[in-house]
Amino acid sequence: MRDVTIAIWAFLLASVLIAESFAVAKPSSLATFGDTCSRLMRPVSARAVVLLGWAWLGWHFFVR
């Protein structure tokens, strides 16, 4: 069961990498993660939420 779970995590990660590679190669077909973030972070509130998420990530893994 652990192997299945790890395989699913690997699949999700690989999907993200493949999608980003495709988006970089063909930006007219699919916006890259960076471009999507730019659009998402236009409103100040959304920008704050994303950056708070980043802060939480660091605090969770490196402090607590």
């Binding site: 999907s15 970089v24 999507t36």
Partner: peptide
């Protein structure tokens, strides 16, 4: 990488939002 920078067209932006949103929720 690509010399084509700046924000994607509306269609690719919509697809991007769907794809990355789906990845995030997954």
């Amino acid at each position: 990488g690509s010399r084509r920078t700046g924000l994607a067209s509306a269609q690719s932006a919509r697809r991007g939002a769907l794809a990355w949103g789906a990845a995030f929720f997954a």
